[in-house]
Structures are given as structure tokens and as C-alpha cells.
Write a protein that binds this DNA or RNA. Sequence first.
DNA 1: CGCATACATTGATGGTGGTCGATATTCGGG
DNA 2: CCCGAATATCGACCACCATCAATGTATGCG
Lengths: 116, 116
Amino acid sequence: MNALPAVETVPDDSRCAPAVPPALGASEAKRRAIVFKALADPNRLRLLSIVKAEPSGAACVCDLTEPLDLGQPTVSHHLKILVDAGLLSREKRGTWAYYSLVPGALESVCASILAL
Amino acid sequence: MNALPAVETVPDDSRCAPAVPPALGASEAKRRAIVFKALADPNRLRLLSIVKAEPSGAACVCDLTEPLDLGQPTVSHHLKILVDAGLLSREKRGTWAYYSLVPGALESVCASILAL
DNA sequence: CGCATACATTGATGGTGGTCGATATTCGGG
DNA sequence: CCCGAATATCGACCACCATCAATGTATGCG
């Protein structure tokens, strides 16, 4: 259910630049929307904020459950979404799982907004 | 262990600055998530892209319906969400409705990401 | 006035997402 | 080897969202 000739077919844009991008392709838009979907929840924004504010740069689930007033499965669920979006990284140490910001991830999202 | 006394109560932060933001308050997070919700849809990203790419800086609904392969009511719906999020502005001229980017809106979103 | 155009609104529907309770998994300790 | 702690996964429920068809509104034109 989509005519849309070949505007969004940019599979091999490993070239220099599109010069004049014909707006935004459907597949590209869908890919970028994933990151924004990850950011489109108040609790996930707070999770990112807490992790970023952590002096050690990392936080485990048990430290994130209480300030958000959410159940542990829910927090794990949100963290998984943030990891899948490429915003957080997970490192398991013993029984604990430490989450930390992916370096440059927020800057990358920022760039994708300005490059609309 | 964290009782979280009254960290997120920032109803009247019309003051200068929080100095050291204690992570992110619930109300602030909810407010910021609205903009990201608006960006969390592929078709809305494409709408923003098309409007931004327009030489005149504005586009009417009839110009946006075809490239997205969506019905006119759906496009109007998406445009309303983008306007409510403060990303687009609407200007009615005759029978046509012209949508254009709010100056500085994208930069503002970018800043809110980096200030997490 | 009457009609066509451009857009917004409404109602309905199928799909997605956030939350929780229960359960599974994995690891460290006695 | 068994037990408890920390976390992930599963199943279900409820709310929200994207989409469309139908209708409403307003503007311009003859």
C-alpha cells in the first residue's frame, strides 16, 4: 500500500552527501523515529537524566526503581528500550547490571534533529 | 535507599536556574516528553523535513498529502500534533492553510536533549 | 445564492505501548 | 548444594495512538 517510486531508497549512501536531500525517505524516517520513541516517555527521560547525573557514570536497576516509583520489571523494560535505541549500554557485574550513557549518543540525536 | 522527599516539585521555576538539577522532575519530564512524542512518528518526521526543505518555508496540506501517501484527515491530524508541540505554526490564507517551522524550535529540542 | 475547493473535526477500529504480577535466570554465599 | 538477592522475561490488562470514512466549516467563485 505504497506507490512512492524510489525516493527513500538510500541503501548505499556511504558517499559524500546527498547534496539536495529530497525531504526524508520513509525507511530513514522510520529508523530515526525509533530513537525519538525511546525519548517519548517521561520515565525514560528521567532514567537518562539519573544515569547521566551519576558521578560514576553508571547506575544499577535497584538505584533506579525507587526514584521513579515504578516496579522493577517496568524499569528493566524501559532500560531495554533505551539500550535498543543505542542510548544506554549495559554491563553486568556479578548480580548487578550497570547502565551507562553511550558516549556521543545524545549528540547524535541532536544532530539528526537539526539535519531534518 | 532513597525516600525522595520533594525533588520534583518545581511548579514555579520561573526563577533564574536550578543551579544543580537533581536529575529530572516528573512534571518537567512529562512536559518535555510531549515534544519527543511529536517526533516519535515517521510521517511527522517527514512532514517536518518537507516543510523545512520548502524554499518558501511554508507548505499547505494539499502539498503534504501525496508524498506521504496518507489521507488528508490523517495529515491534518499529524500537523495539529506538531503545532501543539510548538514545532510548526499555522497561518491560514484564504482557503489554504500554510504550515511553517517555528524559528528556533528544533534548536530548542536539541538543547533539551543535551541538558538532560 | 449555490456550488466547488481546502481543510478541520468526529467516530470507529486495529494496533501499539506502559504497567504490574508472576515466574525464570543468574550469581554469590553459607 | 541449597538459598537468597538482583535482574530479565512472560502474560495480561488498560490506555493511548495512527488511520480512515464520513461529515462539518469556511472561503472563493460564478
